[in-house]
């Protein structure tokens, strides 16, 4: 079992630590994310959840500890195209429609087999709002439009920073359903949340950050 697991480790962190102004923000932490894993990053406000997310995107650099992607060092070249990130800022252009936003994402990241912009907008519950400028959508609908991007692009690893914020009960259920389907396809996801999450299906792995 362990041997089979270590064969498909996607992301591995060894003694990963981050310091800002020589003050430790979090760490050292160790974890391994396999294909099919959904990992919940837990911690109080200021415990470094978003910081860890930014490190995992590759935008933020840390000198302490090791980060490995599929057995190779964690660099832009090795992670290119494998990771998609949804942060506090949704990365949507407010003057464009949801469909136009997805066309840009498709151009930049490519398209998952069998996915198309209209189809993924329907599956996040935005049917009928495809051509509405994003600025006229509600906060929850904007979030759904951003979630649609995850379904459209072929990335295997989803990094979701507070995906449940601004969502109603249906929306939360939607995120859980998308995560479940993604895991079943052999994808992996790291999710931060400071609230209690009722994750449907299997119990997620937990990565605990101490403040």
């Amino acid at each position: 079992m362990r041997a089979a697991e270590s064969a498909n480790v996607l992301i591995e962190a060894r003694a990963l630590t981050y310091s800002r102004q020589d003050e430790v923000v979090f760490g050292p932490i160790d974890f391994a994310i396999h294909a099919g894993d959904i990992a919940l990053i837990e911690g109080d406000n200021g415990s470094g959840k978003t910081t860890l997310m930014r490190i995992l995107t590759g935008m933020l650099h840390t000198d302490e500890g090791e980060l490995i992607f599929e057995g190779a060092p964690y660099t832009r070249d090795t992670t290119a195209g494998a990771i998609v990130f949804l942060g506090h800022h949704l990365g949507l252009k407010l003057d464009l429609s949801a469909r136009e936003n997805l066309h840009v994402a498709e151009g930049l990241y490519g398209r998952r087999d069998g996915a198309d912009p209209l189809g993924v907008l329907t599956s996040v519950g935005l049917a009928g709002y495809e051509d509405e400028p994003v600025q006229r959508l509600s906060a929850g609908q904007k979030k759904r439009a951003a979630l649609a991007r995850l379904l459209l692009v072929p990335a295997r690893v989803w990094l979701l920073d507070e995906p449940y914020a601004n969502l109603d009960r249906d929306g939360i259920a939607l995120v859980n359903r998308l995560l479940g389907e993604h895991a079943a396809r052999g994808g992996a996801a790291l999710v931060t949340s400071h609230g209690a999450v009722s994750f449907a299906g299997d119990e997620p792995r937990r990565i605990r950050l101490h403040a």
């Binding site: 995107t57 935008m59 990130f85 942060g87 800022h89 949507l92 994402a105 930049l108």
Partner: peptide, 14 residues
């Protein structure tokens, strides 16, 4: 920068 599009641009495999 304000709407997060720049992060999406920087993470694109291009």
């Amino acid at each position: 920068i304000d709407d997060g599009s720049l992060e999406q641009l920087m993470l694109a495999p291009q």
